[in-house]
Computed example of a mutant assay.
Amino acid sequence: MESGIVRASADEERLVLRDPDGLSLELVASSTTDPRDPWDSASVPAEYAVRGQHSSVLTVQDPTGTVGVLTEDLGMRIVAEDRDRIRLAAGTGAPGDVVDVVADPAARPGLTAGGTVHHIAFRVPDRQAQEQWRQELVERGHHVTAVLDRQYFTSIYFREPGGVLLEIATDTPGFDVDEPLLELGRSLKLPPWLEPGREAIEHSAARLRLPAENNPALADPDGGGR
């Protein structure tokens, strides 16, 4: 798909673009009310600002099994169907609670590589809820991983019939467990088991530069920002 504006429906438009690795991304303009706060700034007014992830898109050869897992096992519901796209929703169905399943007979299985999405994550409030989901999924015949410690949350993973890797992750303990909320993203944080390789990881990681308006340290010549 080439970059450009696509009208997905009467109340939704998408600006389609590709990242340097070829991954297709869509900025969605929707008339549906989005209660999340906008990521506005001095250069981006609130009415045009990004509010968060609108939806996830699963492209599979045969959508039957995928839709079955999302509805029967994960409790989502079908809210719209249009040609090769089936839209499912959880909760209120507002932006952020939406999954689109796209049928493409020529779709190839995903690989863990540049230009692909590794997995799609669903959130639960805590470890107790996660363990309940794990038990139910195992009872339904899914091969689910053990609970994995990600330092800021815990995760379980399983694949749906179309081959997409799904994750259920906890909100707790949270990304501000080891640094103040307003400091998030200004330094590279590693879990204890990766600290021995910090030098190599820092050397291979791409350098990120935040606009000064998003990082006071950049605007302060004495703040040490770069």
Rank of each mutant, 00 (worst) to 15 (best):
I5D: 06
I5K: 07
R7E: 12
R7H: 14
V16S: 06
L17W: 04
L17A: 06
D19W: 05
P20N: 00
E26R: 01
A29M: 10
T32D: 13
P35N: 00
D37N: 12
P45Q: 06
Y48P: 08
V50Q: 10
V50T: 11
R51H: 00
R51V: 03
S55C: 08
S56E: 14
T64R: 10
G75M: 07
G75Y: 11
M76W: 00
R83H: 10
R85Q: 12
G91Q: 04
D100G: 07
A103S: 09
D104W: 10
P105I: 13
P105F: 15
A106S: 11
A107Q: 02
A107G: 02
P109V: 00
T112V: 12
A113C: 10
A113F: 12
V117M: 07
V117I: 09
V117N: 00
H118K: 09
H119I: 02
I120Y: 06
D126P: 02
Q130H: 05
Q132L: 14
Q132K: 09
W133F: 09
L137A: 00
L137S: 00
V138N: 05
T154F: 11
R159H: 08
V164K: 03
L166E: 01
A169Y: 08
D171R: 08
E179V: 12
L182S: 11
L190E: 12
L194R: 12
P196Q: 07
P196C: 09
E199F: 09
L208P: 06
P211E: 05
P216Q: 07
A217V: 05
A217N: 03
G225A: 05
